[in-house]
Write a protein that binds this DNA or RNA. Structure first.
Length: 495
RNA sequence: GGGUCGAUAGCUCAAUGGUAGAGCAGCGUCCUUUUAAGUCGUUGGUUCCGGGUUCGAAUCCCGGUCGACCCA
């Protein structure tokens, strides 16, 4: 322990260090190895029986977050996983020595306490403390109780402080845990197997994104961090896992924004002998369970627009090109086979005020219209179907129009939430689509996956759900950083 | 990567180019049912870092670091 200066009254760290040293000098250890807890705060509050004062015993534990000292008695509050509970500490009850020691506790200290439940004259259920133990000393002061912690950088770098002092952050991030748990439960109830597949891949396939590269020393080779789960999970379809899913972290070496974190969480689900329509049923079931069990409502307020998003009833189904034609104001899609399709698409995009880059393929120009002018307007749940095949090289082609694919993009709240496909299982078509996608760079082609397809993959529906964006939607968060416990930041020495 | 904005006490925030302040927290006092408890007193600053302009810089200028927002 470092030297403690003479006048420490202004230095909260030094004051606390001094208290720690005094306790150690007196032979008591302020960092205990265990502490008995019979009740979480919320459980204790429910255990109170109206009119039965000081009959129900509880042992609670948590961090001191409020201290109201009234001389010979104190009201304090502790915070545990479930929230706060008030404790009443009285000199008569705990004894002189313990009371004096209690007065030396600081906000932030973690204590265990036992006593009985009663209701104060203002009606708050409170634990009347008979015994307490300091189980972990906090050497640093907490942020201010009223405003909490607002400095964005500190909120992200020291998330634990945000969780302690900002109840809305606690609630939002805990809701994420419950959302993921609910999804697992829904899928388990439908006989899906949860699996884990490699993060380190020789080929980063399944999507078009720039991967992170790392190096394995013993093998003397570079690996890519996965950018999707798809190709591994489909190998499991080949292997006879008919219903399989993974909730896993994927990594994309691209920009950081309110909607993008370099690592994020994806749910991918595959169901053999189903197709993209089956995935519509599945995603409806996932949302129904989420609304019922986690959110407690089938309506959620869309944070950006204030509009109520309704998850009950039928969800809108709309064809991609119907939406495009409506947005541009003329039947652009009728020209898809004609020579001036590109020119008309460019003109339409520019009329809508969009920049068209010279190097873009025509489907990219049209998709710019979709992502900038249509997707943001799809607030209510909408299945967008019949997308152009260039957008998803892993989907089955539509039987009536081979330029389209059997897929949907589920858009909610102006965001793409879940794409789903009837999965491509023809190894020849798949190879062709890969070749178009990778161009000359054959290194990027997952030939081992094509080999797996040649062994036969059952027809299947597959779906991906961006868990972070789903959480943004369901929690009303403004940024992906608000639903990720520790978002990616530039490394920085602690201040 | 580009543009705009920001960084002041542990936290939340003030401060015409002229002695850096407040609230909470801390320290000391009073108070045995408080609810942002109350009461009296009181300590605390490398104004993000490095240059420059100026008699004088938290404030103006340049560079950097970190962050936020928008764009790519």
């Amino acid at each position: 322990m470092s030297e403690i200066p003479q006048d420490i009254s202004h230095d909260q760290y030094a004051v606390r260090l001094k208290k720690l040293q005094d306790m150690r000098d007196a032979g008591s250890d302020p960092f205990r190895a265990s502490c008995e807890q019979t009740h979480f705060s919320a459980v204790a509050l429910q255990a109170y029986v109206e009119g039965e004062e000081n009959t129900v015993p509880v042992k609670v534990a948590g961090r001191l977050v409020v201290i109201r000292d009234m001389g010979k008695s104190q009201f304090v509050k502790i915070l545990d996983q479930q929230g706060q509970i008030q404790l009443y500490v009285k000199k008569d009850l705990v004894g002189e020595e313990a009371y004096v020691a209690f007065k030396r506790l600081d906000i932030g200290d973690i204590i265990g306490a036992e006593g009985t439940l009663f209701k104060t004259k203002t009606g708050e259920v409170t634990v009347r403390i008979e015994k307490y133990t300091l189980v972990s000393k906090a050497l640093r002061p907490l942020p201010e109780k009223w405003h909490g912690l607002t400095d964005a950088e500190q909120v992200y770098r020291q998330r634990y402080l945000d969780l302690i002092v900002n109840p809305e952050s606690r609630a939002r991030l805990m809701l994420r845990s419950r959302i993921v748990a609910s999804i697992r439960q829904t899928l388990a109830g439908r006989n899906f197997l949860e699996v884990e597949t490699p993060v380190l891949e020789g080929v980063a396939g399944g999507s078009a994104a720039r991967p992170f590269v790392t190096h394995h020393n013993a093998l003397g080779t570079d690996f890519f961090l996965r950018i999707a789960l798809e190709l591994r999970l489909k190998r499991l379809l080949v292997g006879g896992y008919d219903r399989v899913f993974e909730i896993g972290r994927i990594f994309r070496n691209e920009g950081i924004s309110r909607k993008h974190n370099p690592e994020f969480t994806m749910l991918e689900v595959y169901q053999a002998y189903s197709d993209f329509r089956g995935m519509m049923d599945l995603i409806r079931a996932i949302f129904t369970d989420l609304c019922r069990d986690v959110i407690g409502s089938f309506e959620i307020k869309h944070a950006a627009s204030g509009e109520m998003i309704n998850f009950a009833g039928e969800w809108r189904v709309a064809r991609y090109f119907e939406l495009i034609d409506a947005a541009v104001g003329f039947p652009l899609s009728a020209l898809r086979q004609s020579a001036d399709y590109r020119a008309k698409a460019t003109e339409a995009a520019q009329t809508l005020g969009l920049d068209v880059h010279a190097g873009w393929e025509t489907f990219e120009i049209v998709n710019e219209i979709f992502s900038k002018k249509i997707e943001p307007t799809l607030i209510q749940p909408t299945f967008v179907t019949h997308l152009p095949k260039e957008l998803c090289p892993l989907a089955k082609l539509n039987l009536e129009d081979s330029g389209l694919i059997d897929v949907f993009e589920l858009c909610i709240g102006g965001m793409e939430v879940a794409p789903a496909y009837s999965e491509q299982n023809d190894p020849f078509v798949q190879r062709q689509m890969f070749e178009q996608q990778v161009g000359d760079d054959q290194q990027k082609m997952d030939t081992d996956f094509l080999l797996a397809l040649e062994h036969g993959m059952p027809p299947a529906g597959g779906m991906g759900v961006g868990i972070d964006r789903l959480c943004i939607l369901l929690t009303g968060a403004e940024s992906i950083r608000d639903v990720i416990l520790f978002p990616s930041l530039r490394p920085n020495e602690a201040k």
